[in-house]
Design a protein around this nucleic acid. Structure first.
Lengths: 196, 196, 196, 196
DNA sequence: CATGAATGAGACTTCATTCAT
DNA sequence: TATGAATGAAGTCTCATTCAT
């Protein structure tokens, strides 16, 4: 709450760009410091290790994700609208800051080997939240009952992540229309499927 | 084709286990050699670099995947059966050697920056192959025409990969029934969706 | 001489404990500040460097030692009584504040290369002071004349330091009787030797 | 057992010189490598850490010391001759390779804080060995019985170490006569004392 | 006096790769 | 083929010290 910059934030934001550009394992801590325009040691003043930075980055955003999922679930909306909210949140997250989502998709999943089990659990929480939405929709007869809710949730999340992955790997910019179109297409696909 | 062991194969198989266990970046070449039971100089006799090993591993398997997709596409089958073949192939691949699939999913498919770059094209070929199946099904009116075929292909692949990811990070064994059930569920989900 | 605590003294005392516990090279300035309960910038307000703290600590105590030796030498006492005074002083120093003596013995007296260099002369002054006592005793025929006085002084000091070293590295507490007994034993040993 | 140099030995010998010259904490591993004329990494090929080098150096020599003490104890000699052997061994050790002894006296004792308790124990073994010699001499009435044997051993060892310390700190060379004279003086001092 | 953010040189250690045998 | 000693660049992290407030 001061006029001076929050150096911690500066470092975090720089780290996102660097991780996105070079990858977590391939970048050096000095790259982050350079990108942030701060001295090397300051990174270690705020974070005990390079991994903690990735950690922090992931948690910041994933907690928003979990909150969004919970909000959607609790909202007074049609199941499809609930899924739409989640898909929109993720797509907008990417739209607003592609680097953060790239880092989460590319580096965190990969790091789940080394990362504490904590992250796996937290990731599962997202699936479970979505699964609960599905369950509720099944209970009210809106969704088919012969599908495992957790499986459905993973199908949904997998689909969304694959879309992000596609964007991540394609060099080009994504147009505003594309963003809107895909948001709808995701939910349409998961709800209606390919059959005519 | 001799009585002695094929050391190259030995190294490759050891590498799979090590990459799966420790991750590509986190393991050392000597870990691979140790796992294979050979001197680590020998690794360099067969492979010019650590990365080439991952390279080789990926291509071996991915080419099978591409062949499977092409076979399915060209086969005289209902579109749904074609997708079923592909889903089954991937699930069986995981069932037969989870480590290979783990390495491909975790280290290659998502390695956007360093390694993945090299293989983006080849990975895209899979999506395109699947997309062609969708297109053909749309042409014959079996699948809805208002879905982008490539998007549909990615939805399908994303779903499958998410299932693998789930297995990869869940500690427990997967039962034979589970494998069979999921194979069918994947295709059911992508074709029929959640709506009742 | 104010109501507030003397921060300089606080830091010095904290440094003794930290040096004794972790060693001079192994501890950080912030460890000292933490132990003293002050911000570590304050350490630099009172001392220009980490080394100066050790410096100060050593000199404070060693000057007392030199004064004691000189007092003993000048006193109207039997040579043996003079040595007894010195041995008692050192033993009591340890008894009163083992950490200070530990730091002096471990970090200064034996630090031949880096730190010690600075104080070699002052350390030698102690030996010389003791040597003068021996010389005087030899002049009056109380001590044997066929022993080099400086060698005798070092024998005496080495013996005392070895006793401290023993206490330093033995975990247990030393009893009051032990302190008294050793004080006498030291002088007895140096004066009479092992022969029956 | 080959014509080529033993690099491990080379590194060990270089380390002695570097530790003696710059001190353990003050020198860099690269200094050791440079002194040995080998590549940086080779040091880590043979030793897991810088500390292990010091460790190895200490143990090599200290084990000789322990062997010497045990030999002396078991030998069919007058007690005084036994002590003479030990004093001679230490003095000759210094004479032959002052750096090793400097490192042991200066760095190991100091490191006893950080070093595993193992070294403290091993150091104690030397005192205990000497103490046993004293005990035996007391049993046969050659040495006075009113002195604690372990205390006597420490007095003896402290005296010897102090002599080394003196040499270590004094810049000048020590003459052959000096070495011989001191060897005898040490034992004379410990056996006969200062009283006439 | 007091704080602790900021700096950056430098330490240890790792490890992919080469190469002599 | 096979070995593992040898190389050295590069990375992470530490921490004494400075300085703005």
């Amino acid at each position: 709450m001061s006029a001076t910059v929050d150096k911690r934030r500066l470092i975090l934001d720089a780290a996102v760009r660097v991780f996105a550009r070079q990858g977590f394992h391939t970048c050096r801590v000095s790259d982050i410091a350079d990108e942030a325009g701060v001295a090397y040691g300051l990174v270690y003043h705020y974070f005990p290790s390079k991994e903690t930075i990735l950690d922090t980055l992931f948690l910041e955003r994933w907690n928003l994700m979990l909150a969004t999922i919970e909000d959607a679930r609790a909202a007074d909306l049609a199941p499809r609208e609930k899924l739409q909210r989640i898909a929109s949140f993720i797509v907008e997250s990417y739209r607003h800051d592609p680097d953060v989502m790239k880092v989460i998709v590319v580096e965190v999943t990969r790091a789940a080997n080394t990362f504490g089990r904590t992250h796996v659990e937290r990731i599962m929480q997202a699936y479970e939240g979505i699964a609960r939405i599905v369950e509720q929709a099944q209970a009210t007869g809106v969704f088919r009952r012969d599908v495992d809710a957790l499986f459905a949730a993973q199908a949904f999340y997998g689909l969304v992540e694959q879309v992000l992955t596609q964007w991540i790997f394609s060099a080009g910019e994504v147009s505003a229309e594309e963003f809107e179109r895909i948001k709808l297409a995701i939910v349409e696909m998961i709800c209606v499927g390919l059959d005519g």
